[in-house]
C-alpha cells in the first residue's frame, strides 16, 4: 500500500491506535504496551487483550510497526519509518486542534 492510502486509512487516528503507536517508539510486547499506555494516561486508558491483539495486527499488516524478536514466546514490536511519519502527521493535526481550542478553555 502506498503512503497516501495508509494516511487515508489511519488519519484521523483513534486514541487507542495513537497511544499504541506512540508506545512503540521503544520496543515492547503487547502487555508492555498496555502498561505503558496506562502509565502515560494516569490509568485512564487500560487496553484490553483483544483490543491490543487486533490493533497490533492491523498496524503490522499496514507496515506501521514491525515485529523485532520474541522473548519467552512474547512477540516484540517497534515502530517503522512509515509509522513514525504517520505519527508525526497525526501529531501536527492534533496540535492544530489544540491551538484552535485554546479559546474555549
Amino acid at each position: 500500500m502506498n503512503y497516501d492510502a495508509i494516511k487515508k486509512r489511519f488519519i484521523p487516528m483513534s486514541e487507542t491506535m495513537l497511544y499504541i503507536l506512540l508506545s512503540l517508539k521503544e520496543e515492547k510486547h503487547g502487555y508492555g504496551v498496555m502498561l505503558h499506555v496506562k502509565e502515560l494516561t494516569c490509568g485512564r486508558i487500560v487496553l484490553g487483550a483483544g483490543t491490543i491483539y487486533q490493533s497490533l495486527g492491523k498496524l503490522e499488516a499496514d507496515g506501521l510497526i514491525c515485529p523485532t524478536r520474541e522473548i519467552e514466546r512474547k512477540k516484540l514490536y517497534l515502530i517503522t519509518k512509515i509509522g513514525e511519519q504517520i505519527l508525526i502527521e497525526e501529531s501536527k493535526r492534533i496540535k492544530e486542534i489544540c491551538l484552535n481550542l485554546e479559546a474555549v478553555l
Partner: peptide, 22 residues
C-alpha cells in the same frame, strides 16, 4: 467471560490473552 471469533488467529493470539491474565 469473553467470547471472541478468530477464524485464522496468529501464533501470538493465545499468548497475548494469557499475558493479560486470561
Amino acid at each position: 467471560y469473553v467470547v471472541d471469533m478468530q477464524a485464522t488467529p496468529k501464533k501470538n493470539y493465545k499468548q497475548t490473552y494469557e499475558d493479560f491474565g486470561w
